[in-house]
Simulated scan of single mutants.
Amino acid sequence: MEIAAYGVLTDEEPLLRQAFGDALADRHRLRCLRLFLNRDTVPTAAGHEVVLSSVNCTLDAEVLRSLAEGGTRMIAQRATGHNNIDLTAARELGLTVARVSSYSPYSVAEFAWALALAVDRRIVRAAHRTREFDFRLDGLMGRDLHGRTVGVVGTGKIGTAFARIAHGFGMRLLGWDVAENPDCAALGMRYVEREQLFAEADLVSLHVPLLPDTHHLIDAKALDLMKDDAILVNSSRGGLVDTDALLETLRAGRLSGVGLDVYEEEAGVFFLDKSLEVMTDERLARLMTFNNVLITSHQAYFTRDAVSQITGTTADNVRAYLTDRPSDNMLTRPPLG
């Protein structure tokens, strides 16, 4: 059997092939494709019982129906998030859908701190200057994070790893989540309402999943509550931040810095080379014009450690499907037998 993997990155491919070789003993061929699975590309999946998807694939009801008609029975998402998959339609079509429940939380937490430090200390601007032999310090002044307040929105595994680093910096910890995490409380974190967190934090970092209740969690009201010189970091999901509201806040000269590894309209843009095209997304183009905004292309998870775990779990999910074994990673599955 041939398994089709979509949206496979160059550095990811050898790890993916190794994981499937180890898990399936090379009994099945793996076809790695750079293109993303969506309405335009779904015909390429015809005849593949198993397909591997990425977060930038668009698996809505129409795509899932086409997959089912083409013979696909199992979709293995190489990510934890799955808001790009219509699970209701998948259940109705009898498709098995699996995800990677967890991987190295340190990959994302450490990258979120890289964004925070880069915007606080103007690292990108400084690097561009020195490459042109301009060694002035004008406009590069940052501030100590020691003794300041960090607001961690979402204190699961990634949020906890982020909080531990903040504790190492000697910061005051505020947290918000649906339930308190004793590991964070042990660090001295105080859980407060969102509004208080936004109002008191010098640095706000987002570590919650994208759900109906968290969509545009950072809206105009939340941004109005934040300090004029606060730093905002989002390494979770783009839809957590209302881009229009963020743009208005930046136009008003508020926020010391913004670090975004995700963007709410990133599908069809991130992971692709758009350097020779006209950027038609005016909001993304406008964000790029602010010198206190740093945008990266959804790379927080992208370490060898995390990707090895992701590919290994994906291979295990496919093996569980092929051997009719239950798995906690299954989001939908028709009755066995």
Results as ranks from 00 to 15, higher is better:
residue 184 C to R: 11
residue 112 A to K: 12
residue 153 V to S: 07
residue 35 L to T: 15
residue 284 L to G: 00
residue 172 R to A: 00
residue 31 R to D: 10
residue 311 T to I: 02
residue 184 C to F: 05
residue 133 F to S: 12
residue 154 G to M: 04
residue 187 L to G: 00
residue 337 G to I: 10
residue 224 D to L: 06
residue 198 F to T: 02
residue 293 V to P: 11
residue 101 S to W: 05
residue 182 P to Q: 10
residue 325 R to M: 11
residue 13 E to K: 13
residue 7 G to Y: 06
residue 202 D to H: 05
residue 33 L to Y: 11
residue 319 R to Q: 13
residue 204 V to E: 02
residue 136 R to N: 15
residue 237 R to E: 00
residue 59 L to A: 11
residue 318 V to F: 10
residue 164 R to W: 10
residue 48 H to W: 04
residue 15 L to C: 06
residue 28 H to N: 07
residue 186 A to D: 09
residue 233 V to G: 03
residue 319 R to Y: 07
residue 177 D to K: 14
residue 328 D to Y: 04
residue 286 R to G: 03
residue 76 A to S: 15
residue 42 V to P: 13
residue 179 A to V: 14
residue 97 V to F: 05
residue 213 D to P: 02
residue 103 Y to A: 10
residue 252 A to P: 03
residue 333 R to W: 11
residue 140 L to M: 08
residue 141 M to H: 12
residue 87 L to Y: 14
residue 260 L to N: 03
residue 325 R to E: 03
residue 210 L to G: 04
residue 33 L to I: 09
residue 105 P to T: 10
residue 50 V to F: 06
residue 79 A to K: 12
residue 179 A to W: 12
residue 276 L to V: 06
residue 299 Q to D: 08
residue 171 M to S: 00
residue 62 E to H: 09
residue 201 A to R: 00
residue 309 Q to M: 07
residue 142 G to T: 03
residue 160 T to H: 15
residue 191 Y to V: 03
residue 69 E to Q: 15
residue 203 L to I: 07
residue 152 V to G: 03
residue 165 I to H: 05
residue 293 V to K: 11
residue 111 F to H: 14
residue 212 P to V: 06
residue 40 D to W: 09
residue 250 L to G: 03
residue 319 R to P: 02
residue 50 V to N: 02
residue 87 L to I: 02
residue 192 V to W: 04
residue 149 T to F: 01
residue 37 L to D: 00
residue 29 R to Q: 14
residue 36 F to S: 12
residue 27 R to V: 01
residue 227 K to W: 08
residue 248 E to S: 13
residue 14 P to E: 02
residue 328 D to R: 14
residue 154 G to P: 06
residue 299 Q to L: 13
residue 336 L to T: 13
